[in-house]
Structures are given as C-alpha cells and as structure tokens.
C-alpha cells in the first residue's frame, strides 16, 4: 500500500502516457498528499510532457531523409557487391 518516492514517481511517469492503473493512481495521490517532493515532481512532470510535445512538433517538421549524393554512393557500393 505504501509507496516509496521512486515507485510513486514511476507511476507518475506511467500516467503521463496514460498507462497507470486506477489503483496505482489512487496510491500515487495518497503519496503525493503526504510527500511534498513528489507533489512537486508530479506537477512539473505535466509541464515536462508539454515540453516533450512541443519538441515532438519540431522533430516531425524536420526533413529526415538521405541526400541524393548519399544515395548515389550507397547505390555504387551495393552494386559493387552484387
């Protein structure tokens, strides 16, 4: 029933991905009620998730593909081994 701070913050992390069970969340809330540090962590964790989502938008916009030159070199090397 009683959680350590390590366990409580792990549940807190899981819940950021919607993967904490109801029972886990109840235990987490009891822990947070009694533990100021984990309360701070929990509040800031929501902010961290917002940061990660912002970062995700930036990453998704980036072009991530091979350059034409790189592909040409790769093609040559593959054909050589053929």
């Amino acid at each position: 029933m009683k959680l350590t701070c390590d366990e409580a913050t792990t549940i807190c992390d899981k819940s950021q991905y919607g993967e904490a069970s109801l029972w886990d969340k109840i235990k987490l809330n009891i822990h947070i009620f009694l533990c100021k540090n984990c309360g701070t962590y929990s509040k800031q964790n929501v902010v961290m998730t917002k940061c990660f989502n912002k970062h995700k938008e930036v990453i998704k916009k980036e072009e991530r593909c091979l350059g034409d030159e790189e592909k040409k070199t790769m093609e040559q090397e593959v054909l050589e081994k053929l």
Partner: peptide, 23 residues
C-alpha cells in the same frame, strides 16, 4: 530533489529555444 521553478512556465514552454535545450 525537485526544487520549484522560478521562470514563468507558460512563457518558457512557448520559447522557440525550448527544443534546442531539450535536445
């Protein structure tokens, strides 16, 4: 131990440099 944050959180998140710092 987590300490409280002094900067304005809303503003900090909107800052375009966020991604660079996070990366």
């Amino acid at each position: 131990v987590p300490s409280s944050w002094v900067n304005n959180i809303e503003k900090s998140i909107e800052n375009e440099e966020l991604s660079v710092a996070l990366e």
